[in-house]
Structure formats: structure tokens, C-alpha cells
């Protein structure tokens, strides 16, 4: 398991406990009491460290190389997933995956950003940063969901839309804009969950819905902390400071009234136990979907409209 800077004391203590356990099992010396003591200390230490994470710690957690991806969660949350490819226009973007599946027995359409788990896969998936054809594939699948009256579930996890020449030539802006526009009118429940990084417009293009949730250690921002630091203070090294200033954590967004709820994470981060994390997502997702399924289409669209109308702060 790859450890982050701030959690080093936890990992060191864990290592020590493992060592003692190994020693106990291979020698006559009984260290059970000692181990118990250390384990209690570990519990307290974990609580202290993971419950007082700074925004920058959370940025690291959201970017953790072992953080579960969309396809990881799909495997746990749904049954019978069938991936569907292509925008029917230009290509099939591996940075977004989507398809049909069953959620507690109900047919749904699920779509999400997809990072690679290694360099080779990351190159294929352009590090989870979509091109226009990714957004157009997503829109195609959403329209299909509406035709067949299936709820839509979007998992958000991207540093942002891919910054490239080809992406601009094919209309990156138009592709993102069209999704925001069309998602506003989808006549089925749409639930969006930020599972990792929510990077700007590239994240938002899968993010207009009736409910928006964030995992505890995910982030959602108009620009990356590095980008913000470069713009604000002409110094990308000030990213940590930017992370504190920009209000990008789940807690911040809840306070700002942008998201509906925070989905708690497994202690130490989602990657410590994907199955358990999926169960935690399920606990929020299922009641939310049940609630939305009670609404008529005009009610659904009316509430979605008001949800976005009320965002913003101003004074007369």
C-alpha cells in the first residue's frame, strides 16, 4: 500500500505491529500484551490523523494512485454491467466508460470518468481526461436512458477535460456545454457522485443532476490547486495554500450549498477497502434514488431547475 506523507506515523506503527506479530509467531517470547497496547495506540492515532486531514491531505487522497476508479465501483454497486462504446460520430474515448447495468434489480445507465491503473492503461485512457467524443458518448447513453426510462448514475473522477489540439478541433467546449444543457432536461432521475477529483468543466459535464454527492476525501474545484497557485501567486509550489483557500473539499462544498451530502469514507481512504466503500456509497445512493423515483417528470425537472437556480452568493 502506498502511503501519503501525513499518514506516515500510522503506517510506521502498523509496520511495527506487524513485525512484533511476526516475531511472536516465530519465537517463544510472548508479546501479546505489548501488541494489544500498540493496537490501541494505533486506533487512537488513526482517529487523530484521519479525522483532522487538511484540504491538501484530501487532495493527495483524492489523487491516490490506488484510489478506486469508476469500474472498480461498478463491479461492487451493480450487477450485470454491459459496457457500451462509442459516440457514433468519431471515436470511443476510454477516459469515459458507460453502459447498462442493474442496481438492486432495477435497470440503470451508469457513466463515469475512468483513470488507468497503470501507465499503459493511463495512456489509453488519457489519464481519465476526456476528449469531446467521451462527452458525446456519455450524452448518447443518457439519451438512450431517457428513451427507456432508466435512471442515470454518473461517477465523477477527472483532473479535467483533456487539454489538446485535437480536442479543441473537435469542439471540446461545445461537447461540455451540450452536456450541461441536455442534462438539465433529462426526464429520468440523475444522480452524480464525485468519487475522486472533480476537475472543473470536464467534471461538470457529467455533473448536472437531481442529487450531487461527494466522497469524504474527494475534491471539486474550478481549477486544480497547482493551477490556482500559478494564476493567483504566479507560483505553482503554493498549491497547498491554494487548496486551503479555494474551498474544494466535500465539507466546503456542503457548506456552500453545492452538494447534497457527503458520503463517508473508510478510515484511511476509500482504497483501504473498496467493497466497504461501495457499501457506504450504496447507503446514500439507494434512498436518494428511491426518493427521486416518487417524483413525476415535471416535479423532477422543476426541482432540478431550482437546485441550480439557488447556487451563488450575492447581495442587493
Amino acid at each position: 500500500m502506498i502511503g501519503l506523507e501525513f499518514e506516515k506515523p500510522v503506517l510506521e506503527l502498523k509496520g511495527k505491529i506487524a513485525e512484533l506479530k511476526e516475531f511472536t509467531s516465530t519465537s517463544d517470547v510472548d508479546l501479546t500484551e505489548e501488541i494489544e497496547k500498540l493496537e490501541q495506540r494505533l486506533k487512537k492515532l488513526e482517529k487523530d490523523i484521519y479525522e483532522s486531514m487538511t484540504p491538501w491531505d484530501r487532495v493527495q487522497m483524492a489523487r491516490h494512485p490506488e484510489r478506486p476508479t469508476t469500474l472498480d465501483y461498478i463491479g461492487y454497486l451493480f450487477t450485470d454491467f454491459m459496457e457500451l462504446h462509442g459516440d457514433r460520430l468519431f471515436g470511443d474515448d476510454g477516459a469515459i466508460v458507460g453502459g447498462v447495468a442493474k442496481y438492486h434489480g432495477m435497470p440503470v445507465t451508469v457513466i463515469g470518468h475512468q483513470r488507468g491503473r497503470d501507465t499503459k492503461e493511463n495512456i489509453k485512457r488519457t489519464f481519465g481526461m476526456p476528449h469531446p467524443e467521451g462527452y458525446r458518448k456519455a450524452l448518447r447513453l443518457m439519451n438512450q436512458a431517457v428513451k427507456f426510462k432508466r435512471p442515470i448514475i454518473c461517477l465523477i473522477d477527472t483532473k479535467g477535460a483533456y487539454p489538446g489540439k485535437a480536442a479543441e478541433e473537435r469542439g471540446q467546449s461545445e461537447a461540455i456545454a451540450k452536456n450541461l444543457f441536455e442534462m438539465a432536461g433529462m426526464e429520468v432521475p440523475v444522480i452524480c457522485i464525485v468519487i475522486g477529483e472533480g476537475g472543473s468543466g470536464g467534471a461538470l459535464a457529467l455533473g448536472i443532476g437531481d442529487k450531487l454527492f461527494m466522497l469524504e476525501n474527494s475534491t471539486y474545484s474550478v481549477i486544480s490547486p497547482e493551477g490556482a497557485a500559478a494564476l493567483l501567486w504566479k507560483d505553482a509550489a503554493q498549491a497547498k495554500r491554494a487548496a486551503e483557500t479555494m474551498k474544494i473539499t466535500a465539507g466546503d462544498l456542503k457548506e456552500l450549498g453545492v452538494i447534497d451530502a457527503i458520503i463517508p469514507e473508510v478510515s484511511g481512504g476509500a482504497h483501504r477497502n473498496v467493497a466497504q466503500q461501495a457499501a457506504l456509497i450504496d447507503q446514500t445512493l439507494k434512498p436518494a434514488l428511491e426518493e427521486l423515483l416518487q417524483l413525476s417528470v415535471p416535479e423532477l425537472l422543476g426541482e432540478r431547475y431550482m437546485k441550480y437556480k439557488q447556487i451563488g452568493e450575492y447581495t442587493l
Binding site: 447498462v100 434489480g105 435497470p107 434514488l289
Partner: peptide, 14 residues
């Protein structure tokens, strides 16, 4: 057949 099943009417959350 899997897709045909997905498209049956009246799915409910179990």
C-alpha cells in the same frame, strides 16, 4: 437476452 431483460417494463429497486 441480457439486454432484452434490461428493457423489461416496471423495474423496481429491490
Amino acid at each position: 437476452a441480457f439486454l432484452l431483460d434490461i428493457h423489461q417494463q416496471g423495474g423496481e429497486l429491490a
